[in-house]
Design a protein around this nucleic acid. Structure first.
Length: 233
DNA sequence: AGCACA
């Protein structure tokens, strides 16, 4: 079965995530990406040896989780296709809400993991500057590897997105159709003298971020995964 | 591949 035999759950389990990301950035990007499907109650991502590359996203409604399950299956996220399943168990934040939270059962597990926590504390000190450099362009790295997009420092969040690696035949109409499905969309601007790039404006940073996460790597033509970054101020 | 709740 597609779901891997795990029955629907209001929490989705994501794996095959890019392990090089800092936990904060991973969570922030996942939050932006997943919140288009519904309200997120909690998002758990750990970088222990056993749990890196995975995350749990807890939605307020099972329908939202189902939509995310479908919509994000194989979604290319920071250069890797994410695999989506339903979580095998109920998330603590849900259990606490419905009164079924049983901390007792967890104590054994927590003891088992105490040793691992120490290890992780050591590991987290190792995630240094080279890790940050490797991820500077986030999703766009396939395109960057092809040499089509110069590697640059990531710009800080902005309500205006900068789109690169577009095929020459791209029109502003095409981009408008793509981007207008996300809330806060304002307009697309292309410069005739500069083919292959465009600016897309949203009302605010968080709305532009949602669109960026959703359309990152989208291919208007087979060889051209679009690379979206924040425009420079 | 991996199923947690810093």
């Amino acid at each position: 079965m597609l779901s891997g035999d795990v029955p629907p759950n209001q929490t989705i389990y994501l794996r095959n995530l890019n392990e090089k990301l800092k936990k904060e950035e991973l969570k922030r990007s996942l939050y932006a990406l997943c919140s288009q499907y519904g309200r997120i109650l909690d998002l758990v991502a750990l970088k222990t040896s056993k749990l890196r590359g995975q995350a749990w996203v807890v939605f307020s409604e099972i329908t939202a989780a189902t939509n995310a399950f479908r919509g994000l299956q194989e979604f290319e996220f920071y250069g890797k296709k994410m695999q989506v399943q339903y979580a095998k168990t109920k998330s603590d934040c849900i259990a606490k809400e419905d009164g079924t939270y049983a901390p007792k059962e967890k104590r054994k597990k927590q003891e088992e993991k105490a040793a691992e926590k120490k290890r992780r504390a050591e590991e987290s000190q190792q995630t240094g500057p080279n890790a940050a450099a490797a991820q500077s362009n986030g999703f766009g790295n396939q395109a960057s590897r092809q040499g089509k997009v110069p590697q640059e420092e990531a710009a800080p969040p902005n309500n205006i997105l900068f789109i690169e690696n577009l095929p020459r035949e791209t029109t502003d109409k095409m981009l408008q159709l793509l981007f207008q499905q996300y809330p806060g969309f304002r307009e697309v601007r292309m410069i005739e003298a500069k083919p292959g790039i465009a600016f897309v404006e949203f009302e605010d940073d968080s709305q532009s971020n949602v669109a960026m996460m959703a359309l990152q790597g989208f291919k208007i033509a087979p060889e051209y995964p679009m690379v979206i970054t924040y425009a420079k101020k």
